[in-house]
């Protein structure tokens, strides 16, 4: 019986089947290449672009081995950019604090007080509105904040104000809508932590004579800290770069970092617009990296989503 030569593709298939390494590469790294090309590489390219490493020659971009901080320098010289960055922080901080204050009692009630049999239903009720496109929800807020809208109707009827107040176009409108949009991202992680909290601990504290206030301050609040930190990060990071809300309910005085990026890319355009926009985007990324690093140092774990 002579040895039969296997066709080449069978040999290759056998190699693949027998080699763990090739198998893992095919199953894991082949799809991961997609992310390398269309997610991670663009970051590198944008970084290089913002450092002046590409030069436009007619319709093509040519790599040039140099590093220049020109775009960054010009970005900060650009009228209004510094103020916009400061304003973004101001909005993001107030949004984070506001979502926390508004949502903690809700997360506490749902996680600690509400009987288990209602949990699922209430969580569904809580979530459903956030499945509606956020642009529509923001547009809906306009009906509430308008001078002839719902809020002014209530305020004037109750006699709190004599004349309708102007809310649309102001900082107040932007911050309130940001709180409304981001509140779910704060509730989720806090609820997640409180729901898993061992209720016997609370009973133990009470049995040992701690008052409800003391139990809350000494047991519940410290134990919910990881949730609060995760929620703050989940709210703060996107809030700094928000551009939809200032555009839809803000005005000329609510320009933010996100608006700046949006304007450079979609209004100014051209090599200068893209360069300045990339620089602004990379400053934002740098900030996120620093914050995430601090978060990991503080909590030492991964972000919990509930």
């Amino acid at each position: 019986m002579s040895h039969r030569q296997e066709p080449w593709y069978i040999t290759i298939l056998d190699r693949i089947r027998s080699s763990r390494r090739i198998k893992v590469s095919l199953i894991v790294f082949l799809p991961f290449i997609y992310l390398i090309i269309f997610f991670f590489a663009p970051f590198i390219i944008a970084l290089m672009y913002s450092l002046g490493m590409f030069k436009q020659v007619v319709y093509e971009f040519v790599f040039q081995p140099q590093i220049s901080l020109e775009y960054y320098y010009r970005l900060f010289q650009y009228p209004g950019v510094l103020v916009a960055i400061q304003r973004s922080f101001y909005y993001a901080i107030l949004t984070t604090v506001g979502t926390f204050l508004l949502s903690y009692p809700v997360a506490y009630y749902l996680g600690v007080k509400l009987p288990d049999k209602y949990q699922e239903m209430v969580v569904l009720v809580l979530f459903t509105p956030f499945w509606v496109n956020f642009l529509l929800r923001i547009y809906g807020m306009r009906f509430i904040f308008h001078e002839l809208g719902f809020l002014n109707m209530i305020l004037t009827t109750l006699g709190i104000v004599n004349e309708p107040i102007k809310i649309l176009g102001t900082d107040t409108a932007v911050i309130l809508v940001m709180i409304y949009t981001y509140v779910i991202l704060m509730i989720l992680p806090i609820y997640g932590v409180l729901e898993k909290l061992d209720k016997e601990l609370l009973e133990a504290a009470a049995t040992l004579g701690a008052s409800p206030v003391k139990t809350f301050l000494k047991v519940t609040l410290p134990l919910s800290l990881p949730g609060i930190l995760a929620g703050s990060l989940l709210v703060f990071i996107p809030a700094v770069g928000e551009f939809v809300i200032p555009e839809l309910v803000g005005g000329a005085n609510t320009v933010t970092l996100g608006t700046v990026i949006y304007n450079f890319f979609l209004r100014v355009k051209g090599t200068m617009g893209w360069g300045l926009g990339s620089a602004a985007g990379l400053i934002y990324i740098g900030l996120i990296l620093v914050l995430s690093y601090l978060y990991i140092k503080l909590v030492g774990g991964e972000i919990r989503l509930g």
Binding site: F43, G241, G281, Y284
Partner: peptide, 29 residues
């Protein structure tokens, strides 16, 4: 490492993802 890298697209704000992809597409023509 892979597990952490897989989380990054969820954490990065969309506006940054969007602008870097656009620059990438522009550079590659």
């Amino acid at each position: 490492m892979l597990d952490i890298l897989m989380l990054i697209p969820i954490i990065i704000p969309e506006i940054v993802e969007a602008l870097t992809l656009l620059v990438f597409l522009i550079i590659l023509g």
